[in-house]
């Protein structure tokens, strides 16, 4: 990002009208973006306020706002974390395969295919999850509950439909896989050729070269990519709304049919039939989601930018 130097300053003396208008509208647009972001926060707070200040008895379910949003936040986090744990190693493997293992021509095609997959609408992932993935996982859950039931995560009873937290974690993993692998691929391919060649020249095997020259260089890029994927997984709506059996409650049991729902899916499911304070409550939960994703994204950008500064010094 910092590779290009600042553009040269134009002739100073007279500032033309056209220039002023153009400069004004350009910086106006930049500021407008800031205003939009602020506007998102302000309007959400404004619409969520009635729910925040309302008495618990008036809210849906007759419980406090924290009691309503708490399980949803938990569900959102746990689904996203599963997705991240599954997707990150696979994405790194894909990125390594494409950059350093696959034949060159295949690699270009694969890169293109993966980029395409990043653009498939999330509602389609939901369709696939409910029609193909969930039924296919039912036997696996039965097996897990039977053989690994002593681990609280697989305590069971296994879901008969496969619409569980683990399934949605896997669907989200497939969704964020292209995002993480695209970013990892980029940083891996930018690993300095000199370092790589030096490693090989010293007799390193391909893996040793990757371990010594590529991974240290790409580490923060991978972390940043994973955080971006996490942000996407946190906010994913339609796939979760379609696939997950979100029946409330907080549980670490990943394979039963009782799971906490996620914030975004809950909004999509309840919003169409909601009125009055229920809408405000949903917007309040949206505000919580906004805060979480903002925090994650800021952290991700901070990590990625730190790497950029570092490599810019080279």
């Amino acid at each position: 990002m910092t590779l290009t130097s600042a553009p040269p300053t134009p002739p100073r003396p007279k500032r033309r009208v056209g220039d002023r208008i153009f400069a004004g509208s350009a910086s106006g647009s930049g500021i407008l973006i800031l205003l939009v972001l602020a506007g998102v926060a302000i309007f959400l707070i404004g619409e969520a306020w009635p729910a925040i200040t309302a008495a618990a008895a008036d809210l849906p379910g007759g419980q406090t706002l924290t009691a309503y949003i708490g399980p949803l936040v938990f569900g959102t986090l746990i689904a996203a974390v599963i997705a991240l744990l599954v997707a990150t190693p696979l994405a790194v493997a894909i990125a390594l395969y494409i950059t350093y293992y696959a034949p060159r021509r295949l690699a270009t095609a694969m890169g293109y295919v993966i980029d395409l997959l990043a653009a498939i609408p999330s509602v389609v992932y939901g369709f696939w999850g409910i029609a193909a993935l969930a039924p296919a996982l039912v036997p696996l859950y039965g097996w897990l509950a039977e053989n690994l039931g002593f681990i609280p995560l697989f305590a069971g009873p296994a879901s008969a439909t496969g619409r569980t937290m683990l399934t949605i974690g896997l669907v989200l993993a497939v969704m964020i896989l292209p995002i993480i692998s695209a970013i990892s691929r980029e940083v891996f391919s930018q690993a300095p050729a000199l370092h790589r060649e030096a490693a090989l020249a010293l007799g390193a095997t391909r893996w040793e070269m990757i371990r010594m020259a590529v991974l240290p260089y790409g580490k923060s890029g991978v972390i940043g990519g994973a955080m971006l994927g996490l942000g996407r997984a946190l906010g994913e709506t339609m796939a979760v709304a379609i696939v997950l059996s979100g029946s409330g409650g907080i549980t670490f049991n990943l394979i039963s049919s009782s799971n906490p729902s996620t914030i975004a899916a809950n909004i999509a499911l309840q919003f169409p039939e909601s009125t009055g304070l229920a809408v405000n409550t949903l917007i309040a939960s949206g505000l919580a989601l906004f805060a979480i994703t903002m925090a994650v994204n800021m952290l991700a950008r901070w990590i990625v930018n730190r790497r950029a500064d570092f490599s810019g010094a080279n």
């Binding site: 998102v40 619409e47 971006l228 906010g235 906004f290 994703t293 991700a300 950008r301």
Partner: peptide, 16 residues
């Protein structure tokens, strides 16, 4: 940071 705004939050913003 804005590239990471969840789509449903953008929808709620327009609604609000």
């Amino acid at each position: 940071v804005m590239t990471g705004i969840p789509s449903i939050v953008a929808g709620l913003f327009a609604f609000a």
